[in-house]
Structures are given as C-alpha cells and as structure tokens.
Write a protein that binds this DNA or RNA. Structure first.
Lengths: 270, 270
DNA sequence: GGAGTAAGTTCCATTATTTGGAACTCAGTT
DNA sequence: AACTGAGTTCCAAATAATGGAACTTACTCC
C-alpha cells in the first residue's frame, strides 16, 4: 500500500490511464500517451477502448484524440451533492462572501493537494466547473496550510512527502522544516495566512473545518489583494471565518440524507 | 455491444458499481448495494475496496457508507475544460443571457438523457456542480428535443429506446410516435419548444448546436415562465439563439488546444 | 506512382487476476 | 451465553488480462 497509486489490479491501472489523459489538459493522441505510458501498445490500446466505451473518455475520430468523457461530469455532480461538506457549506459561504465583500473559497485535501470544491465572489458572477475541481498546491495556499496544520502526525507526514516546494514567489516555503514552523504557528493561533506565497499581490486568511472528532474536513478562506487589504486587516476576519467553519462542521455532523430515496434520481431512464 | 452497459471486463463492472453508488443520491451502505447488485458479496466488497482506494468512492467509517469520491470532481474539471463545447460556448452564453435577460442552458446528450453542462441566469448568481452535471429527460425538454430532432436515424432509434415517457404534465409526450411528430416539426422550423411538457408553467425555446458535418454537439435554450412570456414571444428569440449556436459551432470547429502543454497542469505535485 | 515509414489495430497462446462459496470475526441482541 | 446479521478474509477453480508479433491503413518522400 506504500505509494498509494496504481496498486489495485486492473481497475487501478485503467484509472491510472484515465488520470494520465486528464493530466494532459488537452485532447491527446494514442502515441503521445504510449510513449509516456508504462503499458505496452496493445494493453494501453485496450484500456483506452474500454474507458471510451464506458464514457469515461471521449474519442474524437476527426482528430484522433482522447479526452476525459462526459460521464465524469455526471458522476462529479453526484459526488459534489453527496459530499456532506459542499452542499451544507454553500449557504454559509454565500453569507460570508456577502458580508465581507471578498472572494471565499471552500477546499478539501486530495492526494496532498488542495482541491477547490466551491467558490463565491461577491462582485463577479462565478464560474462552474472551470473553478470547482481546480487543484492547487497545499504548501503555499491559505486553505492548504490550514488543513495541513490540523492533520494528525501520520497523515501530515504522508502529505508532506507529496509537496513539491516549487518557489512560486520569494515568500514561498522552500522546504518541509520551513513549512512545519509555519504550521505550528497556525495550529496555535487557529488560522492560516497566505502572505503572497503563491501569487504576488494575493493574500488570504484561512481556517480549517474540523469535525467534532478533530478530523480535517476542509478549509475556508477569504482572498484579497495587497492593494485592498493587509494581513492585519485580514486577521480581523478570522473570528468570522471560524464561526462559519464551526457552524458548517456542526451541521455536517448532524446532517442526514433523506432516507430511502428510491433511486428516482436518474429521471427519465430505462 | 448491444446494450452498451457492463460489457467490458473488470473495469466495466467496477464502473457499474460506481454508477450504482452515484445513482443512490445519498451515501449508501454495503448491504443496500449488495441486495441490488448482480455481484456476490465478496466480489462487490472487493470492488468497493478498490474504488475507495482509488478515490473514486469515499467511505465514511462512522456511518459505514459509501459515496462518490472527490477524485471525480478533479476529473470532471478536466472533462469540462477539455470538452471543446463548454469552454468555447461560455462567452456566447453569457452574452445571450445578458441580452435576453432570461436563463440560458447548454446541454449535451448522454445515454439518451440530457446532461446540462452550463447555465447562466441573468439575475441570480449561478451554481456550480449543483447544476452542471445535472441530468434530465430528453423527450420533454427543449434542449433534449432539439438534439433528438437532428440525430441521424440510427442514433435516434437508439436514443428513443432509452426514453421512459413518464407523463410529467398533461402536455408531456406519452410515446415515441407523438414525440417523432414533434421532432419532424422541429427539424423543419429549426428550433424546439418546451410547452410546459416537463414542468407546469415553465416554457422554453431551444436550438441544436451542429458541427459542420451535421453531427449534434449539444443544444442551447432560453427558459422562462408562462407568467412572463408566451411561446410566440420565445419564438422571436430563436434567430438569436441560432446565431449563437452557429457561432459556437464555428469556433469549436476551428479550435485548437495550445499544443504541447508540458503536463504542468497539476501544479505543485510530486 | 510506388516503396518506405509510422500510427493505429487485431490476434492468440501464455500468464496473472478475478471469482465466489464458504468459513470467520465482531457487534449488538435476545 | 447463545444467536443473528453485517462485514471481512481465504483459496482453488475459472476467467480475463497480457503483450509480442503480425497486419492494415494513411501518409511521406523519392
């Protein structure tokens, strides 16, 4: 179970291929995948066939390219809805964003990376999939550090191993010790800053959303720019963020799905 | 290749299980899945393990339930971005929605059902995964009928077999012949209406987005209520919708991804 | 225009994986 | 303390995945 990836049988291998296609960020040809792939031609070919058949990939016959398929969008809808966090958090995020007049993010930790699951911008209308599902680094974002700071030691060790410590700006943490020192401070004060560590001019304050058990469920942040605010100013928003996080955690904890929904989700189907 | 589903090997079976979990619409227990499943206990168990391991499912140890996993959200992000249609269409949808002051939908056809991939509401802020990824019936929605009307005969036959003809309202088509007559009219006039066929009081006008080859890529619609508009009024918007659809198709046709993006999509990763 | 090359596809005996009945564990009952 | 049912593990038999090599297009370059 060492390195997580590609352990489980055929299904795991197929999903690796799916990831590989998704990682390209553009429709990709068979041969491009092949030369990157640990599978021989015939095997890779069969996986692509299967995944395409299943709608997990879409094949463009004109351009002979593969891209992630539409079935994923349908499945992600279900994932988003059923994740106890995102739907419950939404009204709180709306309220928070309206009150502070800045962009609010909700993120979760996935494979040591930050995955944004919702976003609200007070001014501009917001985007759909172009934003939810976006991933970012954990070691240099407010939400990322807020979550890392409250992991139990084992998970933290795992997560730290997955950080790349790319120096986005002059203030980005360059190694684990530097990050760990920051995490200790975050744990103490209860909230995290992003002091232009990911993008110059962009600062943010973030708090973890913690289950009653202490488990990290996600993180909330308010983002702004150095032109509009200072870190000290953002710190003033921390109590409000913490209240929202607690309210969300509370609601998630006591939340139950309407029992026995008899599969009438797929509306007009077979 | 007869019934599409569950044909291909182990991977297909695993994805069936994934679908089954997603279809529940709420976190679900092992035993609930088991009694619905065509797989024996041990087999189903192993699939759930594998999928959970892979992040395609999330297991809640407290409640002992499975739900679609967060990895799907990440993958769907890639799917949405790379689908040539949705990202290209977005500015057109924005413009259209602003001009007509009503809700605009963009949908694609998936397994005979309508899958909404984007939405813009002139007034309210829009929703994220809670909306994109939603599915609906094809035989009684504007976008659905607009797409069905322009399928080639074989695909249409396939798609018609997948319609359930549930009578949502008094005006819903109850069978294939009735729907086919409507489709013929739609093909002739070039756009479709939804005349309270899905929900009472809700009407819409829709046009297909057709590739140069004639292939159906998706559909665009403007939705409103009988209180605000009439079908005749909506018909007046058809030319505008058609222009937008043509513009989108044009752009998709000539669209190329920035070549050779060297995998630096996954930002701070291993 | 015909030989050469590279990409994509199919074949099939070998090999490794999946399969599922049955036995086991562990809580919560009676 | 015995019972029940959900969840988990085991292992020999059955099945599906594997990948080297041969084949088919579709271009390209003499």
């Amino acid at each position: 179970m060492a390195k997580a990836q590609s352990a489980d049988g055929t299904v795991g291998k197929a999903l690796d291929v799916l990831d590989q296609v998704a990682a390209f960020g553009r429709p990709v040809r068979f041969s491009e995948l092949l030369c990157q792939s640990r599978f021989p031609k015939a095997t890779l070919y069969r996986f692509l066939q299967t995944l395409t058949n299943q709608g997990m990939l879409a094949y463009d016959p004109d351009r002979q390219t593969y891209a992630p398929g539409i079935r994923l969008v349908r499945l992600a809808h279900a994932a988003w809805q059923q994740s106890s966090l995102a739907p419950v958090a939404r009204p709180h995020i709306d309220a928070l964003s309206a009150r502070v007049g800045e962009t609010v993010h909700l993120a979760q930790l996935d494979h040591g990376q930050v995955l944004y699951v919702d976003k609200r911008n007070a001014a501009e209308p917001l985007e759909m999939f172009s934003d939810a599902g976006r991933i970012g680094p954990a070691y240099c974002t407010g939400v990322g550090k807020a979550m890392l700071a409250f992991l139990e030691p084992t998970s933290l060790t795992d997560a730290l191993e997955m950080q790349s410590f790319h120096a986005f700006t002059a203030r980005t943490h360059r190694d684990a010790p530097s990050l760990k020192a920051d995490l200790a401070k975050i744990r103490e004060r209860g909230f995290a800053f992003d002091d232009e560590e990911h993008e110059p001019g962009i600062i943010c304050v973030a708090v973890p959303v913690l289950a009653r058990s202490g488990r990290v469920m996600g993180a909330l942040s308010v983002t702004t720019s150095t032109e509009r605010e200072t870190l000290a100013g953002l710190a003033g928003l921390a109590p409000e963020l913490q209240m929202a996080a607690r309210a969300i955690a509370e609601e998630v904890g006591s939340w139950r799905f309407p029992e026995e929904a008899p599969m009438r989700d797929k509306v007009g189907v077979v």
